Simulated scan of single mutants.
Amino acid sequence: MPNPSRSRQRRPKTGALLALAAVLLPAGALGAAVPAQAAQTQSGTQAQTQSQSQSQSQEPRAGTPRVTAAVLPLDGSRQRPAVYGDDTAYDTASIIKVDILAAALLRAQDAGRALTAQERAYAEPMIRQSDNASANALWRQIGEAPGLDAANRRLGLTETRGGSGPRWGLTRTTASDQIRLLRAVFAPESGGTAGGGALNPTSRAYVRTLMNGIADGQDWGVSAAGSPTGAALKNGWLQRSTSGLWDVNSVGRITVDGRPCLVAVLSDGNASMSEGVSLVERTARAAVSSTAAH
């Protein structure tokens, strides 16, 4: 678990805070409708409740969800993401699967080879359908948390720590670190950034292809803030066994007014998955709008 004292707590200017106030409220204040397909994905969380009572973090109280968003346009207008809310650590749930894939690709690159057919057979359902059994297999293959942490040092991530033992869903990360990971995959010229160039062009293209092909029913989240087509996504959702509250996260590349934009929204303490999805989507819309206005 990252040292909380080291987590940067960047906040936007006063005007942006006012613009985001409506979505940085407890879930009870939310009114946005949740796509019906999102609710259907709840059954996919059951295999992910691996000893969640042994979480690496204190769970929030019921009725007090947290949310943080980070936004980085890829048009060169910003070098650092705009971060809304406290940039502190959250459980990843299934968004960690992009990081697991990146670590597996780095292992293959180091061996001078492409992913094997078996590795691809794990990677593709892991990203597209958020398959947990495939994630379990690749998590073991990369060396679990130590392997993930080693890969993240190369990718430029500084605030992400792998979950203990088999609990990849309890990896801890920040919104700004998720932007670093997305930048390593999607930035058009990544060589000048921390972690830039760690993934070779073939590896980057492979991750993009899978994130562009998310299964129907999982195409919610940060995509709500951009064009209805062409989003590259990975979402994560996890009900905590001790409290019954939900972690709901979404990361990806979207298109906003014709320009590509990286967005990460992390939340926890949601009373239900549907409320978490609503919070994530409203926050994504507000954060993207606020970033575009400044």
Rank of each mutant, 00 (worst) to 15 (best):
G226K: 09
A103V: 04
D86F: 04
R61C: 08
L181D: 06
L199D: 06
S190V: 14
L233F: 09
G195R: 06
P146N: 11
V280K: 03
I127R: 03
G269K: 11
R153H: 10
P146R: 10
T88D: 15
A93H: 00
L155F: 03
R80F: 10
A19Y: 00
L30M: 13
V98L: 13
R253Y: 03
V98P: 00
Q58C: 02
N200K: 08
W237N: 05
A137V: 09
Y206Q: 09
G156L: 05
A135H: 13
R10A: 14
A135E: 10
A22K: 14
G269I: 05
Q48G: 10
L72G: 09
R78S: 02
V34Q: 09
A21I: 00
T41M: 12
A271N: 12
A145T: 08
L245G: 06
L20R: 01
L17K: 14
M126A: 05
D247L: 07
L238N: 02
K97S: 04
I100E: 04
G244Y: 07
C261K: 00
A22T: 13
D219H: 05
I96E: 06
P65V: 04
D91H: 14
P73C: 04
T209F: 06
G31I: 09
A82K: 01
D216G: 15
V263P: 12
P2M: 07
A62H: 10
P81V: 07
V222A: 11
S267Q: 04
L266F: 03
A108D: 05
L30H: 11
E59T: 07
S51C: 02
G28M: 06
W237T: 05
D110E: 03
T41L: 13
R10T: 14
G244W: 00
G147K: 07
S77V: 01
G63W: 09
A121I: 03
T174C: 04
L18F: 15
Y206I: 10
A151V: 10
G112Y: 04
A32Y: 01
A19L: 12
P35M: 03
A114Y: 07
S134K: 11
A205H: 07
E144M: 12
Q54G: 05
Q239E: 13
Y206A: 11
R80Y: 08
M1R: 11
Q48E: 14
L24M: 15
L30K: 08
V98D: 05
